[in-house]
Design a protein around this nucleic acid. Structure first.
Length: 594
RNA sequence: AGGCCUAUGGUGUAAUCGGCAACACUCCAGUUUUUGGUACUGGUAUUUCAGGUUCGAGUCCUGGUGGGCCUGCCA
C-alpha cells in the first residue's frame, strides 16, 4: 500500500518525507540555486534557562541543517547586558548538549559589536540613520499608533556630520543612559510600526558579561540579529512568529548595507528569515518572565524544580532528551496558533521510558502482611529488570514471612471487579507466591494495621499451581507488588502532578485572589507535589540519577541528583503509568484513608 | 479600526500537478498478559461560512466570519 503520510513512524526517520513548510521552503531555495548550503543558528538570549519551547526551535534549527549536511551555530544573543548573566550562558550550553545536539561554532552577538558599529556609521553617512535627542516618551508619542501615522523627529534631518559626531560621543560615554538613541531613517507612516524609524542603539552603561565596560551603547535586537546572521554566513534564520513583523526591517538593514557596498567578508548570500508558530502545551507555561516569577516568588524550588518546564527541570524529573525530541518531531511545524495536549507529550515519554526503564518494586503506602505458614527465614527469587529488553537481565529479590504491600491493594469490602487482596481472596505476589488473606487485624481506631495470610507452596515464583484431580487450573486475576520487611530500604518519594491545574495556566481565573499581574498564579496546582516515605527494594539504593526507573504498577521515576532525605535516596515521579482501572472504577472502589 | 499572519476530527498535524480526507494522541469496546503496564484488534469523530470555476475543490477565484500578532531606548 502506498504510504502517503509523512508522519507514519517509518517516515519520521526519512528526511525526504518529513517536509514541513520550513523544510519545503529551504528545499526550494536550494533547488533554485539561491543558496548552496544550509547554515542555521539557535540564538537564545542568556537571560534565563531553556525550556521545552526552546527545544522545538532547537529541533528545527538543527534538524533543518542536518537534513542538508549543513551547520548550526549556537549564538548567545547578548545585546542587553542589563538582563544577561554568565550562569545562563553556561546552562544553555549544558541543556543543548543534553538534548543531544552538537553545534558547529559557539558565537555571541557581542562578537559583532565592532562591525555593527562601523556599519552603523556607514548607514549614517548614507543618510539611513540619525541620532535622536528626544526622550523615550517623545519618541513613543511621535510614533503614532495603529490608526495614526507618526511624525518626524525634529532631529531626523540633522546633518550627517552632526549625527556621526554625536554617535561617536554616545559610544565614548559622554551622555547618560537614555539621553540619545541612534535611529534608522525609514518611514514614519508605515503601517508596520516596527518600520517607523526604529532604534538601532541605546545608551546603556552596564557591565557586559563578555565585553565588560568597553561599550556604553548596545545594539538593539533588530539591528544586531540580521547582521549577526549575515556575518556568520547563516542562510536560513528560523524563528517564531513573534518576529514576523520584524522581517521587513531585517531585510531593510541587509539591503541598505548591500546598496552601499557593505558586506561581511567571504559571504556571498544574504540570510533569509522564516517564521513558524511556537508550540504551546496544555498545563505548561513557558513565559520566561513568569517562570522567573515562580522562582523569585518561591513557588518552586528553582529553575530546575522537577515541576518546571525548563530542560533542567524536566531532566531532574526524569524526562529523556530522546522523548522531548521525538515529541517535537511528531508535533510537526506550522504557522497557526496551537495548544498541544500534554497527554501527547506524556505518551511519547512513556513510550521511551517503557523501553528503557529498569523495573523495581516500591511500596509507597505500606501495609504489613504476615504469611503465617511460611517457615523459612527467607527465599530468593529472580526478578526481570526490563521485560522490554532481555539484555537488562534479572536481579535477586528476597522474600520472607513478613512483607509490605500497598495499602491500596487491600480492600475489606471489595467489589467483584477489585482484582487484589480482600478477606478470603487470593492474589499473586509478583515473582514470589500466591497468598490468601485469612485475617484482618485492626487497631483500636478501627484502622487495618496488618493482614494475616497463607501462601501456596505450589505457586513458587508466582507460577500457576498444577491442575487439580479434575484437570482444572486455579487462577488469580491480580498480581501485586511487595517488599520484604527485613531487606526493604527507606526512601523519600516525590509524587509530582502538573504545576498548573488549568489547561491554560495564563488564563484568568474566577477564584483568583490576586488581581492584575499575578492573577495567573491562582492557576497553580496546590497539590503539585506530595512527599511520601516509601519502603523500596534494596536494589533501588544502588540506582543512580540518570537511570530511568519504573516502580511497577505505579509510575516511572528518576533518582533525584541533588537531594537526599537524611541519607535516604529521593525519587521523583516522572510520569504515571497509564491506569485503566482508575478510569473505569466507581469512586467507592478507590482507596480511602482514615 | 490600519497592517501582517492564520483557519482540516476533541488535540496536533498530513494530503506537494485540482483526483477515494489520513497519521498520531485522546476517548470507547475487545484480545493477550506474573505490572489493571506493554503489545495487538476494532470503533466514534474532520475540511470556518456563502457563492463561483470545474467531470471533479481541503486545494483555484470572489466575498464574509473566527483566531493570533503589532504603538520597548526587551529579545
Amino acid at each position: 500500500m502506498e504510504d502517503k503520510n509523512p508522519k507514519s513512524p517509518e517516515n519520521l526517520e526519512n528526511p525526504e518525507k518529513t517536509a514541513h513548510f520550513v523544510a519545503q521552503a529551504i528545499d526550494e531555495d536550494l533547488d533554485a540555486g539561491r543558496y548552496h548550503q544550509v547554515v542555521t543558528r539557535f540564538p537564545p538570549e542568556p537571560n534565563g534557562f531553556l525550556h521545552i519551547g526552546h527545544a522545538k526551535a532547537i529541533c528545527i534549527d538543527f534538524g533543518m541543517a542536518s537534513r542538508h549536511g549543513g551547520k548550526v551555530n549556537l549564538r548567545m544573543d547578548d545585546t542587553n547586558p542589563a538582563k544577561e548573566e554568565q550562569a545562563f550562558i553556561d546552562a544553555i550550553q549544558t541543556d543543548v548538549k543534553w538534548l543531544g545536539f552538537e553545534w558547529d561554532t559557539l558565537t555571541y552577538a557581542s562578537d559583532c559589536f565592532d562591525q555593527l558599529y562601523d556599519w552603523a556609521c556607514e548607514l549614517i553617512k548614507a543618510g539611513h540613520a540619525y541620532v535622536d535627542d528626544q526622550t523615550a516618551q517623545e519618541i513613543r508619542e511621535g510614533r503614532g499608533d495603529l490608526q495614526t501615522p507618526g511624525t518626524h523627529s525634529p532631529f531626523r534631518d540633522r546633518p550627517v556630520e552632526e549625527s556621526l559626531d554625536l554617535f561617536a560621543k554616545m559610544k565614548a560615554g559622554v551622555f547618560e543612559d537614555g539621553a540619545k538613541v541612534l535611529r534608522a531613517k525609514i518611514d514614519m507612516a508605515n503601517p508596520n510600526l516596527v518600520m517607523r524609524d526604529p532604534a538601532m542603539y541605546r545608551i546603556l552603561k552596564a557591565h557586559h558579561p563578555r565585553t565588560g565596560d568597553t561599550w556604553s551603547i548596545y545594539p538593539m535586537y533588530d539591528w544586531a540579529h540580521g547582521q549577526s546572521d549575515w556575518i556568520e554566513g547563516v542562510t536560513h534564520s528560523l524563528c517564531d512568529l513573534s518576529f514576523e513583523i520584524h522581517r521587513p526591517l531585517y531585510e531593510w538593514f541587509v539591503q541598505r548595507l548591500v546598496d552601499i557596498g557593505q558586506r561581511p567578508a567571504g559571504v556571498e548570500h544574504t540570510p533569509r528569515q522564516i517564521e513558524f508558530a511556537r508550540g504551546n502545551i496544555t498545563h505548561l507555561m513557558t513565559s520566561k518572565r513568569k517562570l522567573r516569577q515562580l522562582v523569585d516568588g518561591g513557588h518552586v524550588e528553582g529553575w530546575d524544580d522537577p515541576r518546571m518546564p525548563t530542560l533542567s527541570g524536566l531532566r531532574r524529573r526524569g524526562y529523556t532528551p530522546e522523548a522531548i525530541v521525538q515529541f517535537w518531531t511528531e508535533a510537526g511545524v506550522a504557522k497557526r496558533e496551537n495548544n498541544i495536549e500534554i497527554a501527547k507529550l506524556e505518551n511519547v515519554l512513556r513510550a521511551d521510558l517503557n523501553a528503557k526503564a529498569q523495573r523495581r518494586m516500591a511500596v509507597l503506602d505500606p501495609l504489613k502482611v504476615t504469611i503465617t505458614n511460611f517457615e523459612a527465614a527467607s527465599e530468593t527469587f529472580d526478578a526481570v529488570n526490563n521485560p522490554e529488553n532481555e539484555a537488562d537481565g534479572t536481579r535477586p529479590i528476597v522474600f520472607g514471612p513478613t512483607i509490605y504491600i500497598e495499602r491500596a491493594d487491600f480492600m475489606e469490602d471489595a467489589p467483584k471487579k477489585f482484582f487484589r487482596l480482600a478477606p478470603g481472596r487470593e492474589v499473586r505476589l509478583r515473582y514470589a507466591y500466591w497468598i490468601k488473606c485469612e485475617e484482618v487485624i485492626k487497631n483500636d481506631a478501627g484502622d487495618v494495621v496488618e493482614l494475616k495470610c497463607t501462601y501456596d507452596p505450589q505457586t513458587r515464583g508466582g507460577d500457576n499451581p498444577p491442575p487439580d484431580d479434575e484437570g482444572k487450573v486455579r487462577k488469580v486475576k491480580g498480581t501485586i507488588h511487595w517488599v520484604n520487611i527485613d531487606t526493604a530500604v527507606d526512601a523519600q518519594v516525590r509524587l509530582y502532578e502538573h504545576l498548573f491545574s488549568t489547561e491554560d495556566p495564563e488564563a484568568k481565573t474566577e477564584n483568583a485572589t490576586e488581581t492584575g499581574e499575578g492573577a495567573w498564579l491562582a492557576n497553580l496546582n496546590p497539590a503539585s507535589v506530595a512527599v511520601v516515605a516509601a519502603k523500596v527494594e534494596p536494589a533501588l539504593a544502588d540506582d543512580v540519577a540518570g537511570v530511568p526507573l519504573q516502580f511497577e504498577r505505579h509510575a516511572y521515576f528518576a533518582r533525584d541528583p541533588k537531594n537526599t532525605s537524611d541519607g535516604q535516596p529521593v525519587f521523583n515521579r516522572t510520569v504515571t503509568l497509564r491506569d485503566s482501572y482508575k478510569k473505569k472504577a466507581p469512586v467507592h472502589n478507590r482507596k480511602k484513608k482514615g
